[in-house]
Write a protein that binds this DNA or RNA. Structure first.
Lengths: 263, 263
DNA sequence: TAGTGGTCTAGACCACTTC
DNA sequence: AAGTGGTCTAGACCACTAA
């Protein structure tokens, strides 16, 4: 026999999936269910908290508990890095992606701060530097309308970016073409990349910054960008609200014994 | 002022990260903290539940609350599909990957069931079939020792696999070379793939099957495998415990205006 | 100001593990 | 049998939102 709060949560989840409570609709108030004999306030509250952790509803004080809108996943394919977009056009990679998916675009949806910091271990390893070496960190918080969707922090070696727009401490987006364009103009053309992806529980800070509902995970992306000769020109760490993104990769099946997939 | 249970949870999390409670060590019992004036039993319990949701500890009745062992992420690169491994050798892709990372390998770490089912929407779309068309589903549950790590269900079109070892209803692994080898022997050589990745909250069923601690997310992987002429020969859905895997992809930066990255 | 969800207490009982 | 975490109650008060 499952716990009472579990049974109640499952019952409500079932009703939500059946459509009894469409997205945006309020669930019964906690006290109503208490009066209806579903248990004490703490029990009903536990059920609601479980539904929130499962991503089905969001609760807010003074307002109620409403069924969450399921926003479609934004699909991130490697086409978002297409050189034509940032070299010849006027689009930053992440924005180009949004344009392609038909969503609106506003200039102030990205905030940025640049600072010179001591390289953390992961950053140092990616750049082949000793831990604590000075690197430029360019941190962005990206929003979709009012809602933050992810953070993205790029780390550069000082000798690559000093004197460029990238390290201009004035807050604001990198401007026409974005960071890759600035590097290109500085003589560093990006050639290939490595992306590493995993999901984890957000820290309390990240949950606040990204306004994550209780129980939502984040996906961390590590992107290493190389020039043709293998120099690491950028290492970036992204932290994404898990419910908003999917990643997509196409590749040939490798064949180390033949010639059928070796890059 | 944060809630009392939040403060307690943060304090304990801090102590865990500082090393006061190394992995495997028991945290103070709930009643001890109640006696120490940290709050009522419900309050301390809420703090412990938060720590569990954050992946730091696991609680069990009659036993106590212990600090979780942080297993290193298993890195999944596309090299795990190397043709040389399954075509010329004796290894299944996922096992080859484990051998490469120096872990032990046991035959019975994978269970398998095969059945003919009506294609769900996603499967039908991937194979270009109408929803409900018959497809073979080959479902595996993969374990690392005693602990389940992920499920992987492959869907095949009947005309591709009928009469092969793949649809042998006898439970057990696919045998020498794995599924790709069977397809290769049947005249279908895999050539390229598409992988889609996203994280989400597990269903109650998945949490039970994968023995997930409260609050741990799953990563869902959709893998479409093509022959050289573009025929979809396998569509697979994997559900992975988020804390155990990372994915890794290398690729050229595309250039739709030139020749520098077009596959 | 009224109504919402969120926190907290004190105490009871239950389910499970260990001895 | 003793001790653990888990559930549940009844009731109080707090923080926030909307009319």
């Amino acid at each position: 026999m499952a716990a009472k709060w579990r049974e109640l949560a499952d019952k409500l989840a079932e009703q939500i999936k059946r459509g009894d409570y469409p997205p945006g609709k309020r669930l019964p108030h906690i006290r109503e269910l208490v009066d209806a004999g579903e248990g004490s306030k703490a029990t009903v509250h536990a059920a609601y908290k479980a539904l929130e952790a499962e991503g089905l509803v969001t609760s807010s004080r003074g307002h109620g508990t409403v069924v969450r809108q399921q926003v479609p996943l934004k699909r991130l394919g490697i086409a978002r890095y297409d050189k034509a977009k940032w070299r010849d056009g006027d689009e930053v990679a992440f924005i180009a992606d949004r344009v392609a998916s038909g969503r609106s675009y506003r200039r102030n949806e990205q905030t940025q701060t640049v600072s010179l910091v001591e390289a953390p271990a992961e950053v140092a390893a990616a750049h082949g530097l000793p831990v604590g070496a000075p690197v430029y960190a360019r941190a962005r918080l990206v929003k979709e309308g009012e809602q933050p969707t992810h953070t993205l922090t790029s780390y550069y070696r000082p000798e690559h970016v000093e004197g460029t727009r990238l390290v201009d401490p004035t807050p604001g987006p990198a401007g026409r073409g974005g960071g890759f364009r600035v590097l290109y103009d500085a003589g560093y053309e990006i050639d290939h990349m490595k992306e590493q992806i995993f999901a984890r529980t957000p820290s309390a800070d990240e949950a606040r910054l990204l306004q994550l509902p209780a129980g939502e995970a984040v996906v961390e992306l590590h992107r290493t960008t190389y020039t043709e000769d293998g120099t690491v020109i950028e290492f970036a760490i992204g932290v994404h609200a898990a419910s908003r993104f999917a990643w997509e990769y196409d590749f040939k099946v490798p064949d180390s014994a033949g010639d059928g997939g070796k890059p």
